[in-house]
Amino acid sequence: MKKAQLEMIGLMIIVIILVLGGLFYLKFSLTTEEKKEDTSVQAYNLMNAVLNVYICGNTSLRSAIVSCDLGESICDNECDFNGDYSFFSNQLDDIVSKVIYLNYSFYVNKGEIEVFKVEGCKYGQASQSYPISERNEYYEVFFKLCKI
C-alpha cells in the first residue's frame, strides 16, 4: 500500500470517530425521558374522600351505594341502580367536579357483577379497588382519572 493511501485511511478513521462522537452526543442530549405521572394514588385518595362525604344527615356516599343497590331511597329520593339513579350520580358528579378538574370514571362491582358505572372517560389510570362492606353486602369500587 502506498503512503498516500495509508494517510487517507488515517483521515477516514478520524472522521469516523468524530461522526460517532457527534452521534452519541446528539443521542444523549436530545432524548429527554418523559416522566409519567402516577395518578393511581390520587384516584384512590379521591375515592376515599368522596365516599366519606355525607350527602344528607348521616348518609355518606358509601352508604348510598348500598342503599341504591338494594333499591332503597336515599335522602328522601328514590334510588335504584337498576332504574332511576340520577340523584346518586348527580351527587357524585357535584362532589367530584368541585374537587378535581379531570374527567373520571366510577365503577361499583358486587363480586363479578358490575352494578353501577359512570364512564366519563376511557383511558386513564385506575385506582386500586376500594372495598365497601355494609349490611352484609360487599362491594368493590374503582375510580379512574383521565387527563383528556
Binding site: Q42, N45, V99
Partner: peptide, 13 residues
Amino acid sequence: SPVSLYYIDKYGI
C-alpha cells in the same frame, strides 16, 4: 393529592 377531612360532625374534601 385529595384527602378526606374530618370536622367532628361531617366530612369534607
